[in-house]
Write a protein that binds this DNA or RNA. Structure first.
Lengths: 207, 207
DNA sequence: CCTCCATATGACTCTAAGGTCATAATATCA
DNA sequence: TGATATTATGACCTTAGAGTCATATGGAGG
């Protein structure tokens, strides 16, 4: 958590710091990100930085928290209208919201990509021990789907949950490399559908 | 390329250096790998290292080359027996060989994972400009498949090629986290099949 | 035994990182 | 205005990295 001093700052100053930090973390991995650069680009003294934050990790976690707060809004927007409990609908909502978020906030998306590419040690440093809870959630949904017969019995829930998580990352990364003309922007639904489709036809019950 | 001095060394010494380097690069990303550690673990002086190699990148590329030479043998073993030209057979052979290789050489696999997780800058540093040729190859096979009707027309070859490449990485990473008891070892075929299956049923022509 | 050449060495430089701290500047309030 | 609390500062510290170089070592041939 940032120190109280940081929150006492004027909104402009706080925003300036956040903005520079976002740029830094979207261009470099956590360990390659540099406090020196951030301080320089913000125009504050290095000593000041350490009046605001405990250390680099403190700032990084704070930035992640800000991002995730914004992302939650997206997810809610896409999930609230579905109450069916169908696994594929849920998946679709997750992908759609994730992709919409990435398109609206390319800088956040870049940070997410760096984050998911971190090695285990660094991920543990950042998250502590609570991790891959998203994966567990997906795994449970698959297990339920297998119970109620909507998903094939002969697949490993563990494995598919893993793959689905990775596909999420992969699609974000794919989007990063594309230019977003209006046509594409309006058809990202189709894009996420194609991923769900890929999974769905691969693991759904054959009838 | 290592300097001549390196190749003049006794085989034991060369192997010692390679072995330590493999360990280092399998535990750390390229930039986090440390010449100091390598030198220390090898028991040679730092000056000696720079008599053998131009710099860290020189060693890293050399190690990659050694690995890829071994990997080619695997791929050939799995690809030579198929001459059908069927896309899914090719995919299956690629996955099978990749997974078999990763199981037989977990250290190499770890290096591969780090490598594929590198950011763009570092990947360009390592490979120069020639990259993602594997992706292009897959893409072309998909395009052919679409021409001859074995693959659906309404999917993006570009996108699927990207996804397939990422799945390859994901499966290697997944395997890394598993312990290889005999049962699993003998059934990795089933494992790779499940990935192909995931893709095949997702993109094959519906009839 | 001496010369010569390839190999071996580790102290050294330079750079850049994260983080500290005594002090200066500024704002708040009596 | 003067006292007090808050914020700002940049020189400085430690650590660790890659890479250098003058010198030492050791073996082969005359």
């Amino acid at each position: 958590m940032p120190k109280q001093t940081f929150f006492n700052l004027s909104e402009e100053k706080r925003n300036k710091i956040k903005s520079v930090a976002l740029d830094e973390f979207s261009e470099h991995s956590f360990s390659k990100s540099s406090i020196n650069r951030i301080v320089e680009n913000t125009g504050i003294a290095k000593g000041s930085f350490y009046q605001y934050f405990e250390d680099k990790l403190d700032l990084y976690r704070y930035i992640l928290q800000c991002i995730s707060e914004e992302k939650i809004i997206y997810i809610q927007k896409y999930t609230e209208e579905l109450s069916s409990g169908d696994f594929f609908d849920y998946l679709k909502a997750t992908y759609s919201s994730g992709i919409a978020f990435a398109i609206d906030h390319p800088v956040y998306a870049k940070i997410g990509i760096f984050l998911l590419k971190e090695d285990e040690k660094t991920q543990k440093l950042i998250f502590g021990d609570l991790m891959s809870s998203g994966e567990d959630f997906v795994k449970n949904m698959i297990l339920k789907g297998q119970e109620n017969g909507s998903i094939r019995q002969d697949i490993s829930a563990d494995f598919v949950a893993f793959i689905i998580n990775k596909l999420n990352l992969a699609s974000t990364e794919y989007l990063k490399s594309k230019t977003f003309d209006d046509d594409f922007y309006k058809s990202y639904e189709a894009f996420s559908n194609s991923i769900i489709d890929l999974i769905k036809n691969g693991i759904k019950t054959v009838q």
